[in-house]
Design a protein around this nucleic acid. Structure first.
Lengths: 356, 356
DNA sequence: ATGCGTAATGCACACGTGTACATTACAGAT
DNA sequence: ATCTGTAATGTACACGTGTGCATTACGCAT
């Protein structure tokens, strides 16, 4: 820590200048293709730089005043297809605009999230896209005020920034109503997040709203950490009871997995004993049995929109999100429509042979 | 570009110094908790820094000589469970050692890969973990000589760096022999990569070696880009012929998906008509039908090992990889054992009802 | 009063880069 | 021979931070 010179000191423009017997300003200009430099000199400088293995120092350039061209995306879980698909689309957009993307994983841990945000701010990041954690630290919200910032997928009340989300309320409303219209009387919802996140509140609200239209139906709701284990435990606890739900709406493809595991272990079958409607559309949903009915989100459009906003690219006119102003702030919310993809995992209750 | 001051100029230690009427050296020492500074001064400096919203400048620190504490991981495809699982384990290890991980996606594009490597080198990254692309640019290999670097999963001949891989040859050998012992006479392998990558050559070699032990068996091999589409197209072309294979070994879970799609479209069924053995073990393999037999890799161990080597952490004694020296270089190769996980997707040919 | 040791702080420089400004060189016009 | 304009290069500073060295202040012993 004390007084240590950098271990591997590559050549700098000063070294190149000394080698050629010119000033370092000439080298700098030559490498930046300034019109002030003679053609011959440029060539000699470039040749020397290449042969000496010169690598420019990004830190020095940033300090000189050039904007760092780093964009950060903080996501909770890279093993969740939903987020990795988003990460991919963001990466494409950012790379296409000539900038550098830094992916950071928060693991739904507020302290890790804070560390990432702090590191990105200290690096003078050009912009940050974040899917905030449920109990986000106030300090994190403070730091985010110093950077152009967009919230993606989830909206946290402490963060004052534009929001790009899916129409979660309509999504779970459609899913819930679908099950009820098929004739299910006892349905349930397993969701991620908590009361502080839009993905928690909005989805539960949609589900409840669907149930409200069917007075003779009862509903159970469980919210927890978006990992397969929570889906598994919750499903196991429900399936053991006599008044188990005959249809379940899942708030994450991670829950779908845990739920499938629970259903198999308790000897039930989908969709014969239990109907399932998933969230998001990972590639294996289509081929699992007769297919898993699910709510598909316009992942690509959402990601590209958020990335374009941060990179200050013109927004392509995508399949129109609805735009509304968030009261009390200057921020806006872009809500993207969702789509129910009908496959084979939901049937009327007690129906042994699905319509196929 | 020209002479622009940074747009959002936050306060620096000089501003804090001016505010308190001390020199910036005092502020710097106070913030770094130097013993040279009086307790009272420290407190006043910290209070001022907090109230003024001071954010340290990472670029200046790096330039001053402090090692950047960034570690980079360049992976080809974040939507592939295999790599996202690796990314997660690397992120955990790197975060635990107090460093910052930068994830970059190469999309199997050598030019994009070069861009990422260059950016990481210019940022004076502490170390790079890379899963190299098939036709990696020589320039990329040159740049990597300037950084502590480890190859993960794939080995590219141009890159002179330690290697952490799975025992791919044994893996496909076991898978191929398994199908042959079940009685299959026509088997096939769909693999990723090309002749320049270890994942291409090693896996094909293992498969061929298995077939060599069964003189009356015939085998087909297809190598291509590791995307579902290639698996789909290849499977479709094979299934249409009269001498179609009765068992297929897949070299990536991405191919498994495309192959399942092809099998369904052509009206066949797994495992009744076609036996399948996958690679890697994404979570849905266990619950797909009676389960997909597959070759499981010690993803976590491999990732943690590579990350520990880059972060200069002591290597935990993991379930022993075999270590060998790579001839012609000073680099070493760590090969991790694989494991065949037997589930329900492989049966003797023409067997309508698997043993369950 | 002088000397001395210690605690606290200021001064000045270095890191690598880019650029405004000054300087030099030289060709052409007077 | 002198002036003017242009092309090419050098000089010097700034960015924000950390640290070696000099300096100040002060208490205490001589």
């Amino acid at each position: 820590m004390a007084g240590l010179k950098r271990t591997r000191n590559g050549p700098t423009i000063k070294d190149i200048a000394a080698e050629l017997g010119v000033s370092h300003a000439t080298v700098s200009r030559a490498l930046n293709d300034s019109p002030l430099i003679g053609t011959g000199t440029k060539e000699r400088v470039r040749a020397a730089a290449a042969s000496m293995g010169y690598i420019p120092d990004a830190a020095a350039k940033v300090m000189r005043g050039a904007q760092s061209n780093i964009v950060g995306f903080i996501l909770p879980d890279v093993e969740n297809h939903f987020y990795s698909a988003i990460a991919r689309s963001i990466a494409e957009t950012v790379a296409a605009s000539g900038m550098q993307l830094v992916l950071a994983i928060s693991e739904d841990d507020p302290d890790l999230e804070l560390r990432h945000v702090r590191a990105l701010c200290e690096a003078r990041t050009r912009g940050i896209i974040i899917t905030p954690v449920a109990d986000l630290r106030p300090e994190t919200a403070d730091l985010l005020r110093n950077v152009p910032c967009k919230q993606l997928v989830r909206r946290h009340p402490l963060v004052e920034a534009d929001v790009v989300v899916a129409d979660d309320t309509t999504a779970t409303f459609q899913a819930g109503r679908r099950l009820l219209e098929l004739g299910h009387k006892r349905i349930a919802y397993i969701g991620g997040g908590s009361e502080t996140l839009s993905t928690g509140t909005a989805r539960v609200e949609g589900f409840r709203r669907a149930v409200a239209g069917f007075p003779d139906a009862t509903a159970a709701v469980a919210l927890g950490p978006p990992k397969p284990e929570f889906g598994y435990k919750t499903a196991i606890s429900w399936l053991g009871t006599s008044d188990r739900p005959s249809g379940i709406v899942l708030g994450s493809s991670r829950f779908t997995l845990g739920t499938l595991n629970a259903i198999r272990e308790t000897g039930f079958e989908v969709p014969r004993d239990i109907s399932l409607i998933g969230y998001d559309d990972p590639d294996w949903f289509e081929f699992w049995g007769s297919g898993i009915t699910t709510i598909a989100l316009p992942i690509r459009e959402m990601a590209v929109t958020a990335a374009s906003m941060v990179c200050e690219l013109p927004l392509e006119a995508t399949r129109g999100p609805s735009i509304s102003k968030i009261p009390g702030t200057e921020a806006h919310e872009l809500t993207f429509p969702v789509r129910l993809v009908e496959r084979g995992s939901d049937t009327p209750p007690g129906c042994a042979n699905p319509a196929q």
